[in-house]
Amino acid sequence: MRAFGNRSLVTTLAMSVLAFLYAPILVMMVFSFNDSQYTGLPFNGFTFRWYEALFRDDQMLTSIWNSVYVGLGVVVISVLFGVPAAIALDRYEFPGKGMFRRIVMLPIVLPGIITGIALLGFYLTIHLRLSLYTIMLGQGTALMCVTITEVFARLQQLGKSQAEAAANLGANDWEIFKNVTFPGIRSALFGAMLIAFSISFDEIAVTFLLTGRENTLPMTLWSLLRREVTPEVNAVATLIVFLSIILIVAGMYASRGNANEREA
């Protein structure tokens, strides 16, 4: 039996932590229906008007779409460049490997603003105009380590022998990747994509300095929060939480189908 310790104490503590995590989210949700100009007490009554306002707010809708666009771009970048990096780190010894690993991990510990300022200086030097793409490149660099660490950990766990067996049976590089490596890392890769997208979707620090004329959702909210705050802000956040839950659950169920295969 795995469980030990005072069950009711552990459960109570765990539930308190969950309550701590969800209290502001519940407050946020409740006040998205508040029939008042302000997102605070008193609660004047139930209304959908902030959701209606949201769907008429072109700036808000555009920035949601911009965030999705940037997030998808970040996912593509971190898969295209992160998976090869993870494979290189897993399979080969090469000079400078330790330094390469540190450089890759650096954006995790670095304040986003620092990544931002370095890239902004670089963009200004090469006269690259700030746009959604400059954000994408910045976030892609910062979040690539998520893909690299997740995929690397899975590759280490999988071991070498399946790939060796495939090579031993005469498979070429592409056949080994398609039949062994990719099926092995699929669920880890999916998880990394999910995490990279969700962090990108809510990213402010790197984005802050790299934004041109088009704003992502957090940047729009940031400018709103510094001026006047209406419950429309709560409505946006609430809507996104529900959409994301649906997406995550659907995605996890889709990927769970082949999750038990790697046990073998």
Binding site: P24, V27, F31, I240, S244, I248, M252
Partner: peptide, 30 residues
């Protein structure tokens, strides 16, 4: 389910969550 509950707060905008703390802790707060 619980794993999911840990991840979902990521999706609620950081800014809105931080602002929600103001709603809770402020002098006219909950």
């Amino acid at each position: 389910l619980i794993y999911l509950l840990v991840i979902v707060p990521w999706w609620a905008s950081y800014l809105v969550k931080a602002y929600a703390w103001k709603t809770i802790l402020g002098s006219g707060g909950i």
